[in-house]
């Protein structure tokens, strides 16, 4: 058949054309560390500790998923590099079934610690963990392990930094209107926004906080328009949480509105207006979990990152000229939360 062979040639040409272009367009550098050879050999002391991470969004999202990736990289360095600690990741596993398959697969490959970094993974983890009693799992963010013996739980007390950010916002606002943008009312996003609102109210009784939940973790355009709405309502300080807030930060930048970040450092996006970021640093608790695994404890404990244990900390933008009294107030608030004299969410 004449037409048939002509088409075959066309498709082949198309394939070749794409083949010819692709290597030139993308540099041949792997974006992730090389994979560990899947082996069934039981792990001995001399072998590197192997960690696998599953995250719902991209590991460079400047938010939730990046916070765990950055932590593991820190832990890897602290343990002496890839010779002592191997790290693999499956990012963008927003489909929970796929995440479940990844968790199961890593567990069956004998990874020493499999981290399910997303509260929505709890259900599948509950089904998988009992099948691998010798493997340790970590699940965040959640308040407890819900009774599974080989699962560690971890969460961020994001309301603490939220409160500090709220105090700073209350001190910096001149219009007495502050805006905050969130995804859906759950998890560390809700904690952060609740803490933020409490902080603003505690810091400035006249200030009003407007909250906008845009119903999505990914809709950058709507997050941006939510920020525009805050601008329209007169806000001169804004905050927000989850990966879609990069859209809101852009609006803040264009309108000269101050931004208070959380989860990961957002300073690079808008050095002119980012005042401070609450950083999630999971590396401390991950080191602790690895220690426990070394001692033979595979789970059953819950961890929190807090301002007190240093898992949460405030990273100030060096390029932003924060008035000294506001900085002192913020430091005081951090101290108050640490020593318990301030109760963030009574």
């Amino acid at each position: 058949m004449n037409k048939l062979s002509k088409l075959a040639v066309m498709i082949l040409l198309l394939a070749l054309a794409v083949s010819a272009c692709a290597p030139a367009a993308t540099p041949a550098s792997p974006t992730a560390p090389p994979a560990a050879e899947p082996t069934d050999v039981p792990v001995e002391a001399a072998e590197p500790f192997r960690v696998a991470v599953v995250t719902p969004s991209a590991n460079n999202d400047l938010a939730f998923s990046q916070s765990i990736h950055d932590a593991i990289v820190l832990v890897q360095a602290a343990m002496g590099g890839p010779e002592n600690m191997q790290y693999v990741i499956s990012e963008s596993m927003f489909v929970v079934d796929d995440a479940g398959a990844a968790i199961r697969d890593y567990a069956s490959q004998g990874y020493d610690l499999v981290i399910a970094h997303g509260s929505q993974y709890g259900g599948v983890l509950q089904e998988i963990a009992p099948d691998f009693p010798d493997i340790s799992f970590a699940w965040g963010t959640t308040v407890d392990t819900f009774g599974i013996p080989n699962v560690f739980a971890y969460e961020a007390r994001s309301e603490e930094g939220g409160y500090v950010n709220g105090i700073i916002a209350a001190a910096l606002t001149e219009s007495n209107v502050v805006g905050v943008v969130g995804p859906i009312e759950t998890g560390d996003a809700k904690l952060y926004v609740d803490g933020f609102v409490a902080g603003v109210n505690a810091g400035n009784a006249d200030a009003q906080v407007n909250a906008n939940w845009i119903g999505s973790f990914g809709d950058v355009a709507l997050a941006s328009e939510a920020a525009q709405t805050h601008v329209g309502a007169g806000a001169d300080v804004m905050a927000g949480t989850a990966q879609m807030v990069v859209g809101a930060i852009g609006v803040a930048k264009d309108n000269g509105i101050l931004w208070l970040g959380t989860q990961a450092s957002q300073t690079a996006l808008a050095p002119e207006i980012v005042v401070v970021n609450q950083i999630y640093d999971w590396s401390g608790i991950i080191l602790e979990i690895i220690d426990l695994i070394g001692q033979g404890t595979l789970g059953g404990q819950s961890f929190e990152i807090t301002l007190e244990n240093g898992g949460l900390y405030m990273e100030y933008n060096p390029d932003f000229d924060l008035p000294a009294d506001v900085r002192a107030l913020a430091d005081e608030t951090v101290q108050g939360i640490i020593d318990g004299s301030i109760n963030v969410l009574p």
Binding site: F94, V95, V96, D98, Q120, G122, G123, E127, S216
Partner: peptide, 18 residues
């Protein structure tokens, strides 16, 4: 058969797998 509960990650795809 698989999840034994309904959950959401804010989108549909997390639960439905598209």
């Amino acid at each position: 058969g698989v999840n034994f509960r309904v959950f959401t990650d804010g989108s549909a795809a997390g639960f439905t797998g598209s």
